[in-house]
Each structure stands twice: as C-alpha cells, then as structure tokens.
Design a binder for these strands. Structure first.
Lengths: 191, 191
DNA sequence: GTCTATACAGTGATAGAC
DNA sequence: GTCTATCACTGTATAGAC
C-alpha cells in the first residue's frame, strides 16, 4: 500500500489516464483512481480540486511561460513576433517523452463532454493570459486579442499533429511555427 | 401551486436567474429553483440536463441559424461576407426585451467558474458550427476557422456592449456589424 | 506536511405511480 | 408530464494518524 511513497501526483495522473482509457471517463470513479495509485479518495482531492483537473495539471505552467516570454520579447518586436517567441518558449518544454502521454490524452478528452468543457476553459484562459501580456506591451484591442488567438490556434493545431501517432514526428516547436505561418498566410488571403 | 401551469421551462429559467442573482450560483440548489417555479427537482431535470444548462437554453437555435444563413449566402460572397450575413440573421432575433435578461445573465456567468466553463464550451461549439458551414461552401482550412472565429469574436464583444446597462442602446445587429468591421481593420494592421 | 476515516450536502439518474 | 423515492457519485469538511 505504501502510503509514504513519493510522486503521489504523478501516480494519480497516470492511474487516471489508464482507467479513463480502459473504461471511459464516466465509468471511472475518483475512488478507483485513488485505489490504483495506492491512495484514498481524500488524498486525491488534496492534490486536485476535481475529477477533471487530473488531466490538465501543468496548464498553469504554460500560461505563466507564455506571459513571461511575451514580456521578455524585444521591445521592437511586433505583436506577432512576440507571440511567435512565446510559442517557442512554451513548445521547447515539450520533450518527446510527453508525446506518448499526449497521444493517449487527446482521444479521452475528445470523447467526453465534461472534459471538452474543461479544455475549452483552459484554452480561453491561455488566450486571455496571452492577450493581457500583449496589452502590457502597449498593443491595443482588438489587435491584442487577435494576435493571442492566432498563437493559441497555432499551438492547438500543432499539438494535435504532434500527438498523432500516425503523423511524422517533427518537434512540437517546428510544427507550431509551421501552423503559425500557415495562419498568417490565410489571414492575408481572407477577403 | 399549480403544477399543471404551462411554460414550465420559462418559469424555471426565470426562477434560476432570480435565485442566482440573489444568492449566488453555488448557494442555490436545483431543488430551490424547482420550488420557486412550482415544480420538483425531477421535473427540472426533465427540462434541462444539468444545473448550468438552464442559463444557456436557446443556444442551439443560434447555432442552427448561423449555419443556415451561411449556407444561404450568395455563392459569390466571400467567406467574411457570408459570416457577416450570418451574424445579421442571428442578431436580428435578439429583440430589445431580451436585453434586460442578458444584462442580469452576464454578471452571473462571469462570477462563477462552472458557468464560465459552460460558456466557453458553447462558444467553441458555435465557432465549430460556423466553421463547418464555411467548409461546406468550399472554404479551406485554416481560413474557415479564422473567419468563423472573427464572427464569434465580433458577436461576443457586441453582446457584452448590448447587455451593458451603462451603454448607449444601439441594436445588437448594429453593434455586431461595428465590432466586425473593427476586427477586420485590426487584422489588416496586425503585422 | 502528507495521508486517512468518516460524515455530509448536492447533483444527476432511474424506477414506479398518478 | 408530473410526482415520490432512492441511489451512486462528486466534492467539502473535520478530526486525527504518521
């Protein structure tokens, strides 16, 4: 039972993703997740505020990284250049061992409405943080919001490709840069 | 208490918004909402799938209207022209008596995380439906997604202004057109 | 500071009666 | 369509063990 074992958080995340993949999200209880991690339900809720959040831990780190990188970008950088630099800073932290986790994560989220909902909120908060960071640089609305949206959109697209086992295995950074360039080209041709 | 009265749905929506405004969302139970509407908890759940949904009823109508209007737009219309036509079709249905409801709704949503979450999901689905309708017209990605995002963004901005009691009372249609034009101008100046 | 035991309010589902 | 009743599960709170 080893209640003194370290890495309780990691064990919970791993147990949750395993169970959700095997049985589905709805059919899995928090009690089961804690059991498989060798912990109790109470302990689960000490680490995560609710059942959904176990799959989205670490999102705050990305939000912070994005905002910091935008703030640190050259004062002469245009809004889109600042966003591109921020995307680089975040995507560089996604090492290849996280790819297998992402590949199992995305189908689970896609298959459950509660999880899509949480995912939508996380995306919104990411975009808001990026928008705020751009506004701090003096970028006015609605340009700040648009530039942020472009960045998050590029990241989402690239993350899906990166996690796809059928895809060619470029780095997330390379995929994101490419998606960002495609979006900029589409923008110019929009009307 | 007249359990056979008609308009159960409307009574439930009204009771819910009243109670959420008075006591807050968390402090209100579904039982209380049903009580105030002269119904029971079970009946509430026959009308709405969960506690949050009572504030988002009718969203499906807007989604359908948007998609139909995009499909009905002139074959020669550009993507952004089709989106503009779709926005007109939807905003025209927001008569002025719905403004007071919206004015009370938005602060309640903004003040609760669960409701912001549901709102984010609804926004996502609206954008997806609009994107799909554009793709049906032959607009390729990522242009379709971008054009749809622009439309939803204009609507969100305008809806907030329309619902604001402190604002000047233009129609939602006029506000949305203006927001859409501002976004297009910001786009052109982005880099 | 981390984990556990227990009790509890509320959501949302379900079955059966009117 | 509505009601009563009951149920599993989520999420909170508390008190205590290591």
């Amino acid at each position: 039972m080893a209640r003194w074992e370290p890495n309780a958080r990691e064990r919970l995340v791993s147990a949750a993703l395993d169970l959700f993949t095997e049985q589905g999200y709805d059919a899995t209880t928090v009690h089961e997740i804690a059991d498989r991690a060798g912990l109790t339900k109470t302990t689960y809720f000490r680490h995560f505020p609710d059942k959904r959040e176990v799959l989205f831990a670490g999102q705050e780190t990305h939000t912070r990284l994005l905002a910091e990188a935008v703030a640190a970008a050259s004062p002469t950088a245009t809004p889109l250049e600042a966003v591109r630099a921020a995307l680089d800073a975040v995507t560089d932290t996604f090492t290849d061992d996280r790819r297998a986790f992402a590949a199992r994560l995305l189908p689970v989220i896609a298959g459950n409405s509660e999880l899509r909902e949480r995912s939508a909120l996380k995306r919104l908060k990411l975009a808001e943080a990026l928008t705020d960071a751009l506004r701090e640089r003096g970028v006015a609305e609605p340009a700040a919001g648009l530039a942020a949206e472009l960045g998050v959109r590029a990241f989402d697209r690239a993350f899906g490709q990166w996690a796809d086992p059928a895809g060619r295995h470029h780095s997330l950074t390379a995929l994101t840069r490419h998606a960002f360039d495609e979006l900029r080209a589409a923008l110019a041709a929009l009307d």
